[in-house]
Nucleic acid binder design. Structure first.
Lengths: 338, 338
DNA sequence: CCCGTTTCGTGCACCGTTCTACGTAAATCA
DNA sequence: TGATTTACGTAGAACGGTGCACGAAACGGG
């Protein structure tokens, strides 16, 4: 512990002494509770200003609320997250709540630890974005702290809320967009399932793809490619898929995250887009918009999802106990890749 | 507050009662402090396991340490951050420390609030990545909590450490790479300065660019473009720069973050790369590697910076009080854009 | 066998807040 | 004017841990 010239912390007691009032009085002013005269308030506020007093969140959390929310993100390299985060922040900021973020690195174990960490830090509520954690575990945590989940389908959950774009509908939009252009040889590319509980977005999009294909009478043309996790063999696999003699003419990819590397592989192989390969992604990430990428993608309006999540969390924190499961409408962003 | 079937929390008292020992004994076992017999330890650990006890970070923090570090990031959409974060995590995880992240959104005001929040949450130390906060403010905070700063040059700082890649050297590498290809009409493109204290990386890279140009006898060819912040007029400005009759033949861009949109604008205008425009970026982001981007870039080895930062923080937390200012060597990643 | 050391476990005073319960003075009402 | 109410401020007990100081064994050497 660095113990140089440690400025002794300004506590509520320091303020009370300075203002010549009781500790409780200062506390009341801070929480603008009932029963404070203007004279007292002024005195206390003057001292607070003079001393630069900030209440300790940790101590405050031991009895009251901390006005801090926890947000758990899968990672920081996912283009889907900034929009959601910004949506959350827009709501929480104006309500005077602070946000602490945990980065789950897509490992369920890490995520559980982080959630526990947030509970132990006495946060007032949690928003989990694209969490990998199973529903039953979530129910367990939800008994200890209000929770809202984004990007994880669990429509029967009782203890927590879920906010999602309608991933099945998004997949249907993509398939339809291909059909409109006359394609019938449409494949779906997804990440390899990893303990997959059918709750994650990728399987939902797969289900939507299958339904849409079946509805179009193309059930026998259904093909699903599953990408391995690690980087090197993934790039290889992308190339292999593209070079195989019976490669699909059109690919709907579960996320821009994989669609763009796929596009890159196609480009490297000298394939024309969309003439030799048509492609639609998901998330409408900023990269998709770049002219050399120009990727058609499904947009799920991250800021809106974030906003809805924050609002749901607040309503749950203030009493609602019956679960809410919201599904928003995705939109197709037309570009040159299909 | 959701007050459904609130599982009453397992506290240190619950454990003590269950194991038939004192609260202090449990505390000792948790902190594996001196003076615990094997018998006692076993008894207590059994109860802890049975009850699933986790100590409250908040309460613990009021006297001891929390084993939690705060990491402040500029944003989550910056390709430079994942590497650094991963580097930090690799060190802290094995040391049994948890990380809470704050997202500063590149606004100094928000960042200050978040740092205060982290101090109030009793974190044991802070790593600030690409923070916008002025040096004097940092010194102030550094008196309250050990701090290490990444991506912000403040070589004279006393109270905190800084870890940076040598941005001036990186700029020099870029200029040299252009010179080697025979370019002399080399411009620098940067973000418009925003309260800029010369400490941020962009001005450092600018200084390096100026030095390198001067050293090459091209002082009179020095040109600097400053991009506005907001998205729309930025794209316009990029196009304008590229379409002006005396546009530079080679541009060194302060970050891939702006180099890639610039590349996109060039592509949209049908300009050949590198024949009509040569480009070098900074950060070697994953996108730069994509075949349709193929951007030459300066790599600063984020994971290494993160690792160094975490190690510096630990050494500071365990007593070191004289500041450390580390500069790492950047490398040029050759690709097709120059 | 006595006395000085260790070793182990406990009681208790913190840490910085919140919040309930209570006392007092002023204002209102009959 | 006396009885109520209302407004304001204060003690002091939580909250869930930590860690110091202390006492009681157990140990060990002369």
């Amino acid at each position: 512990m660095a113990d140089g010239d440690t400025e002794t912390r300004v506590t509520i007691r320091t303020v009370a002494a300075d203002a010549g009032v009781s500790v409780a009085a200062v506390s009341k002013v801070m929480r603008n509770a009932y029963g404070v005269s203007d004279a007292l308030r002024l005195k206390v506020e003057a001292s607070i200003g003079k001393l630069g007093y900030r209440p300790s969140v940790a101590a405050r959390g031991m009895r009251g609320r901390t006005f801090t929310l926890g947000v758990l993100l899968v990672g920081i390299d996912n283009p889907f997250l900034p929009g959601i985060y910004q949506g959350i922040e827009s709501v929480t900021e104006s309500a005077g709540y602070k946000i602490m973020v945990g980065v789950g690195a897509a490992r369920a174990r890490t995520e559980v630890t982080l959630i526990e960490q947030m509970i132990d830090n006495r946060m007032d509520g949690l928003i989990l974005v694209a969490s990998q954690i199973a529903g039953e575990t979530l129910e367990h945590f939800a008994r200890q702290i209000p929770i809202v989940v984004v990007g994880h389908h669990e429509p029967a959950a009782q203890g927590y809320d879920t906010i999602n774009n309608d991933d099945q509908r998004g997949a249907q939009l993509a398939v339809q967009a291909f059909l409109d252009r006359g394609y019938s040889d449409i494949a779906y590319m997804t990440q390899s399932d990893q303990g997959d509980h059918h709750a994650d977005v990728a399987p939902q999009r797969e289900a939507g793809y299958r339904k849409a294909m079946t509805a179009a009478g193309l059930a026998d043309r259904i093909r699903v490619f599953r990408l391995p996790q690690c980087g090197l063999s993934r790039d290889e696999m992308l190339s292999n898929v593209l070079q195989s003699p019976d490669r699909p003419r059109a690919i709907f990819c579960w996320s821009d995250l994989d669609a763009i590397p796929l596009l890159s592989a196609a480009h490297r192989l000298g394939m024309g887009i969309p003439d030799e390969l048509a492609l639609i992604g998901y998330d409408n990430s900023p990269m998709a918009e770049l002219s050399m990428v120009d990727l058609t993608s499904i947009d799920q309006d991250g800021p809106r999802l974030g906003k809805l999540a924050a609002e749901a969390l607040f309503s749950r924190m203030t009493g609602r106990s019956v679960a809410e499961h919201i599904l928003t409408e995705p939109t197709l962003i037309l570009r040159g890749s299909h």
